[in-house]
Amino acid sequence: MVAFLVTALSVAAVLTPIVASVSLVYRVSGVVNFGGGFIAVFGGIACAHWGSGWAGAVLTLVAGAVIGALCYFIAIVPARAFGVRGIGLTLSTLGFGLLLTFVTRTWFGGTAFTVRPWLAGSVDLAGFQTSQQRLLIIGLAIVVVLVLFAVFDWTLVGRRLSAVSYDAELASVYGIRGGRYQLLAWVVSGVCLVIGGMFEATIASVDVEVAPRLLVLSLVGAVIGGLTNLTGAIGGALVAAVATTISDQFVATGFQMTALLIVLSVVLLVRPNGLFSFRGTAERL
């Protein structure tokens, strides 16, 4: 049981920032970021390359912010200017992801990388041996979530971001310049993605081939969460993590995607808008 909990939570720790990022960008810009997995992988590999000390991690975070902004300016702004909407923009983010993969390969090579754990050694939890690093990233993920909550729920910047994501036109009537907040969302999203990638790289190895898997995990988590708010994103990440861990530990290893597919299908059959989308609270006709 402890083993299951620790594993599931550490998987959720990797997924939560990534899912939160996908859902944030979707709410503010209306785009599902298909480049997400590639950005996360870049984060993991870059951090491994730039050293596992704090400097490397900070540098990676900065890189994440820059990549988020670049993705907005390269994949979204020009396409929108030419009237592209919906799936077209999603394709565009995929294009950006591939471009980034090229950069990753050229700078760091195509092999698998691991980030040296920030905390070495292991602990014994009720008879289950686990690395301290796993516990650390669970803790860090909670910190990330708290920071996100603090920024989005308690600051004026966050409330304006919600305003833009709820109704960009109405927000502009309030005097809020939507473009700046979209850029902000992409920057935050880039940072969250590389955080997820770094977490993954400290407990497993990361290479460019992992990107599609991370992408699907994040998309499924986001869809299950309902793409409506941060709580939904966390819920979606947890459900995805629990589903994959259950299939790994109690059914058979190597059927994570199948487990995800089953959960996703059931959720979408029962609630086509996602599990955590509470339409009633803020929406009333």
């Binding site: 565009s92 294009g95 090229f102």
Partner: peptide, 8 residues
């Protein structure tokens, strides 16, 4: 990647 970005 470039192809997709430009084409879209």
């Amino acid at each position: 990647g470039l192809g997709i970005l430009v084409l879209v």
